[in-house]
């Protein structure tokens, strides 16, 4: 009798498992096919050679005259490592992304702090005001800076009208403009996780610190900042990782000497039509970013687990 019930129970359990598995399978397969598999293909093509054909690259595995041959071409990577252009592009991408992230943090942290300290009634409006720009067009917000920074743009016109300068300052098409653009575009992504983290902070900890004789500045550095570390990491990753691969901002605001890897990849692909080199550029970018991405992933998962 007992065995029978057990079997019935198992049967029911496996039946219950079936729809469950298909529910898991739908998003799983989609993301596997359209997110993970593409990277394998990029890796594959980075080992191919460019050729004038459709598609414009050679096959790794060919079957000709009953001979199966695998052609792994390391030429693209050798090329990337030997050419100074690529190496300095990687370096300057990381430098630009790091500096921009730092500025985002320096501007965003006090802003997030001020919003979290605001009266509950105005908090939502302030947060909305911070996010709102990111819902309008990214491209157009970057475009706005062309008019502001160009030689006969608003800043130069105003300064010349006031007599501060005689000749326009060159700001557009410089690294400076790229910094401004990245900070401007990504600031909301820094503030959001910081704010979310600060709202979770138990305010009595801040009061306890003050009660024990710590000045507001000491409290900020000894209590508030250490306890919002998770938000700082998330915010920095949300800015740094996409900024490394940024294309639109260096293209529109940067100059010819602004080397950023996203722009190089774009040019290899669209202008030179060299898909294998573009793939190799992407693979190296991924290799550089894989650690920050995993760090971000781990943080996000920890957040999700803490919540539930």
């Amino acid at each position: 009798m007992k065995a029978l019930t057990m079997r019935w129970y198992k049967l029911r359990q496996s039946a219950w498992l079936k729809p469950r598995n298909s529910v898991i399978a739908i998003p799983y397969l989609w993301l596997l096919l359209f997110f993970l598999v593409p990277f394998v293909i990029v890796l594959k093509i980075s080992f191919a050679e460019a050729q004038i054909a459709i598609p414009p690259y050679t096959d790794l595995i060919t079957l000709a005259n009953d001979q199966l041959s695998i052609n792994i071409n390391l030429g693209n990577f050798v090329w990337l490592f030997n050419d100074d252009l690529y190496f300095s592009a990687y370096l300057s991408s990381i430098r630009i992304a790091l500096v921009s992230t730092l500025f985002c943090l320096l501007i965003g942290y006090p802003m997030a702090l001020a919003i979290s300290r605001a009266p509950a009634s105005s908090r939502n409006v302030l947060l909305l005001l911070v996010i709102l720009p990111s819902w309008t067009s990214f491209l157009i917000r970057i475009y706005a800076w062309i008019g502001i920074l160009k030689p006969n743009g608003y800043i130069n016109n105003a300064l010349m009208a006031m007599g501060v300068i005689d000749t326009p300052i060159v700001m557009l098409h410089t690294d400076f403009a790229v910094y401004v653009g990245i900070v401007y575009a990504y600031l909301p992504f820094m503030i959001l996780p910081l704010y979310a983290n600060m709202m979770k902070l138990d305010h009595s900890l801040v009061e306890a610190s003050s009660d024990l004789g710590a000045s507001p500045v000491t409290t900020l550095f000894k209590v508030i900042i250490p306890l919002t570390k998770a938000g700082i990491i998330a915010g920095c990753m949300l800015v740094f990782i996409p900024a490394v691969g940024e294309f639109v901002i260096p293209e529109l605001l940067g100059g010819p000497e602004t080397l950023m890897i996203g722009k190089i990849l774009w040019e290899e692909f669209f202008n030179n039509r060299d898909w294998p080199v573009a793939s190799a550029v992407a693979i190296i970018m991924l290799a550089l970013l894989i650690l920050p991405i995993m760090w971000f992933d781990r943080y996000q998962n920890k957040q999700m687990e803490e919540q539930s």
Partner: peptide, 13 residues
């Protein structure tokens, strides 16, 4: 003056 908070407010870090 020093206070003992209801939640104790011990610094978790």
């Amino acid at each position: 003056f020093n206070m003992m908070f209801q939640s104790y407010a011990l610094f978790p870090h």
